[in-house]
Design a protein around this nucleic acid. Sequence first.
DNA 1: GGATATATGCTTAACTTGAGCATATTGAAT
DNA 2: ATTCAATATGCTCAAGTTAAGCATATATCC
Lengths: 316, 316
Amino acid sequence: MTQVTRQPARTNQRHPVSADLIAVVIAVTDGQPRVLTIEQAQALPSGPFELDHRSLQSGLRTWVEQQTGHPLGYVEQLYTFADRDRTGGERVISISYLGLTREEQAERSPAHGWRGWYDYFPWEDHRAGVPSVLRDILVPRLSAWANEAEDPSMRHDRQQRVAHAFGLDGRDWNEELVLQRYEMLYEATLVAEATRGRDAGSPRSLPGRPMIADHRRILATGIARLRTKIKYRPVVFELMPPAFTLLQLQRTVEALAGRLVHKQNFRRLIEQQDLVEETGETVSETRGPPAKRFRFRQTVQAERTVAGTKLPLSRA
Amino acid sequence: MTQVTRQPARTNQRHPVSADLIAVVIAVTDGQPRVLTIEQAQALPSGPFELDHRSLQSGLRTWVEQQTGHPLGYVEQLYTFADRDRTGGERVISISYLGLTREEQAERSPAHGWRGWYDYFPWEDHRAGVPSVLRDILVPRLSAWANEAEDPSMRHDRQQRVAHAFGLDGRDWNEELVLQRYEMLYEATLVAEATRGRDAGSPRSLPGRPMIADHRRILATGIARLRTKIKYRPVVFELMPPAFTLLQLQRTVEALAGRLVHKQNFRRLIEQQDLVEETGETVSETRGPPAKRFRFRQTVQAERTVAGTKLPLSRA
DNA sequence: GGATATATGCTTAACTTGAGCATATTGAAT
DNA sequence: ATTCAATATGCTCAAGTTAAGCATATATCC
């Protein structure tokens, strides 16, 4: 193999654009997942990618640290999309990220603006059963939307999609479908963002706090990603203090997943994965016997790819 | 909830950048996964994001269709990164995509430049057992690299990482770790890209065809994504002709995964998922009894989230 | 002192997964 | 024609994984 130094034939005339970095920064306090916001809790933090940023991710990091005074732990890219700038005809490329930070670092202050993420998605918290806003308000309206379709096959299609996304008709509710649910509500004009700019006539009261532009959609993407990720990578620990009890860990997972887990099985799962070790201390924060405290085991193995094999691979 | 129209406080001075779209386009022919290339098979197709592109994805689509004359089926975003332009000090943002296209549309022609992806990653094809290039060349060199570390703990660490990534010492080989393996080989200067620009003194012959810039790294990302994805989303069908036998489907999956699957269990898996239905025809392409032909069932359900629950969720 | 919530160990049934046996069917080789 | 090799396809079985629940001891709250 000889070394290759030629350039690709792609450097014709370039159309300048500008790039924004948008952050979905998550922390969990008091059993509530929270997201870092600005602008009266109506926007996600975002800022331009600048010349002196070494990379996109480091730009995001320095910049979130400036705003919050706290370092971001885990950061991963979410999605990149292009909009026409609202002011000029110029293009803006938005690169969104998911960031996780520690509970202790998430003090609530007016400057930072941490908000419970279920303020924006009240239909996503199933920890205490099906949320009333879903059962009493959204499901009827979604049914109405499905049935208002002319074409019978389209009607059937909508009904199926609604039932699948929201876990109706005896189906399981799948907590990962955050984005699909938001998009379906958008399609049915059951979120405020969907009626913006047109027909300001009937401002119905709609559940969930809206955000500017497509920020709530980006937040939905971040939540969905996190709910998926906690199942195969030990990212929850990024949200935990250095030492914690298994119940605290469980409550954090439940807060993120929006549903309850089976306690004994959860402990078995955690312990058999060798992800934690006892600190030796115990604490009695609540009733009941004192709980052991654990810490996250930072092993080389911790990059364990729990490679969920869904293919019948042969071992031979 | 009132409607929000305020802008975020983020539109200060903008630093213009330019944006490139890079495509990893995959097809499978003759049991070999192939990737669309340009520049004597040393570059991935890529082109600038232009003003008249409606969105990033549609820009990519129109543009790949221009080059190949064929529509892209499935497209998903891979990753976005920023480089300093090699010519000026300006920034280039590269947005990479994974695209899948049908076998029948992947005629090989000099213009298109389809190349087997194992030309670039000969250590990734384990269908016929551990590839000789891995066993005879890379493993010894990787061991040497691990042992050349001064610090004993670093030595140990490297040995562990090598064993984990390449499935040595009785460990399972995980086909999803394509990117980790490429990066490890890069770190050990066992791929040509790692020695570029410096020390042209000893041009060792290294396995795998190199590409310009970081295109081989992007290809590795695409392969890894696809190997992960086929396990929980029915994306293989994007690569299949309208009708196919289960063996053809299996061979395609094996080509992508780089390893063999258990035939009977594969059939059980496919059929129990209700993803396919018989066309009614049979074909005898090879020896043995004629095989039934199937087609992909395009159901609403097909967006099945095979949501691999790795949390002990309660059903109650 | 009793109610209540907790920490933690253990069991069981259902389901999933990996592996292999068995049999029938065909094209190619002899 | 007969044999061989590769195939399509049905079936079984053992091992592993998961969901659920039982049980018991230990705290706090009143």
